[in-house]
Amino acid sequence: TQNSSMCPSIDDFRNQVYSTSYSLIFVLGFVGNSFALAVLIKTLHQSSPFHVYMMNLALSDLLCVMTLPLRVLYYVRKGRWEQGDFLCRISSYFLYVNLYCSIYFMTAMSVTRFLAIVFPVKNLQLVTVNRARIVCLCIWIFSSLTSSPFLMSGQHVDPSTNKTKCFEPPKHASNRLPKLQALNYMGLILGFILPFLIIILCYAGIIRTLLSRTPATRRQHGSAQKAIKMIVIVLLTFLVSFMPYHVQRTIHLNFLSKEGTSCSEQTFMHKLVVVTLCLAASNSCFDPLLYFFSGEGFRSRLSSLRQTMRNSTMHRSVKLKPISSANGENHQLDAN
């Protein structure tokens, strides 16, 4: 058995990858989701259940990316936390609340799309804006409560370096491991496997219904194209962001409770933690694609917003024109 403290540190790799990735995710996530949220708020009068889920997803992503600059600061300072215990706890908490809110909002969007295509008549009675709002409220409460254990661990002082630490993964054979493993299995089943199964079943139903339609009917239904784009984006987000993170987290926690691991194994595992956590945080960058390509009339909302802004600009310039022409006449009179 090799003690992890005797193994070469991956701190330089970790600090570089985290600070670069989180900076990029912050910029892309903040711009994309702020823009989407602005469009969705401006066109609130055209509300639909899908619109409600999109708004909540954008809000959840913004909450998450707002905490990333604190992480960037921590890794730029080479693992020294100077922002206090409260911000340490809240930054970890918001990352996990967003992660599971994103998964559940995507699941709700998939179920909504499934009902609209497979049961179009029942859908009108089942899926309403008010029901969508209640579902969103339940998702927020559930994600906030199930992520609350992350509020329990805050900053701590590393006795070997005397540095104040935050966001640190558990050490080998830590006494926190049994509790973390139990939390992980709960998160894995309720927060990943169950929603993923629901999404797969919804998409199987959607594809089956679309394939049973005649080509002429398929062309008439714009919802078919939106559904296919949504399937591609959501599955990509799950396969790139959520799956590697949940699989690796489970393997890593089991690995930490094992005895007799070599330094190369420990280094490899720690590097995988860094890469998969960055991928998990990157889900905030995928979501704006979801609004733009499969959002219910998102592009038409965007063009109507553009048209409204253009009309108001023209209205303003028309108001100003008589004043400038009157000034022109005055100049001519002065010249005579």
Rank of each mutant, 00 (worst) to 15 (best):
S294T: 08
P178Y: 01
N184M: 07
V234D: 03
F142C: 10
T164Q: 00
F192V: 09
H331T: 15
S60D: 04
I228K: 09
Q225D: 13
L37G: 04
Q307T: 12
A216E: 15
L59P: 01
N327Y: 06
K42L: 06
I193T: 07
L28K: 05
V65E: 05
M106R: 15
P170H: 00
L57I: 00
T237E: 09
A224I: 03
S34M: 13
S147M: 00
M230D: 02
K42I: 03
S304C: 10
P244G: 02
C166K: 13
T209H: 08
I90Y: 12
R219S: 13
V127D: 01
Y100V: 11
S144Q: 07
L279E: 05
K226C: 11
I199K: 05
V247N: 11
I251C: 05
L180G: 10
P49D: 05
M55N: 13
F119E: 08
M269F: 04
L126E: 01
T267I: 14
Q83I: 02
Y93H: 03
F238D: 02
A36I: 04
R89E: 10
V232N: 10
V27K: 09
C136P: 06
F150N: 12
R14I: 01
H331I: 15
Q220D: 14
S284N: 08
Q220M: 10
P288C: 03
H331F: 14
H270A: 11
C166L: 13
A280W: 01
K171L: 13
S312I: 09
R219D: 13
Y185L: 09
C202E: 00
R301K: 12
A36C: 06
L333W: 10
V129I: 07
S143K: 07
D158K: 02
M314K: 15
C7W: 00
Y203L: 02
F94E: 13
A182G: 14
I90R: 09
P159S: 05
N33A: 01
F196H: 04
G297Q: 08
V234F: 03
P49H: 07
I206R: 06
R301F: 01
L201F: 09
R213S: 11
N330V: 11
I189T: 14
L190T: 01
F119R: 12
L99P: 12
C202K: 04
I189L: 14
R133T: 01
R316F: 09
M152I: 09
I117G: 11
C64K: 08
L277M: 13
Y185W: 10
T128P: 04
L290H: 04
T214E: 15
N123C: 15
D11R: 09
L180W: 09
I251D: 05
A204R: 03
Y22D: 01
M66L: 14
Y185H: 11
I231N: 06
V135R: 11
R249M: 07
T1V: 11
G154Q: 05
I200R: 10
V52R: 08
R299E: 02
A132R: 08
S304F: 07
L236C: 12
L177I: 03
Q46S: 09
S325M: 11
E329L: 10
Q125N: 06
K258T: 14
V27R: 06
I323P: 09
S303G: 06
T112A: 06
S143A: 15
M314T: 15
H331W: 15
T308W: 10
L253E: 01
V72S: 04
F94C: 12
V76Q: 15
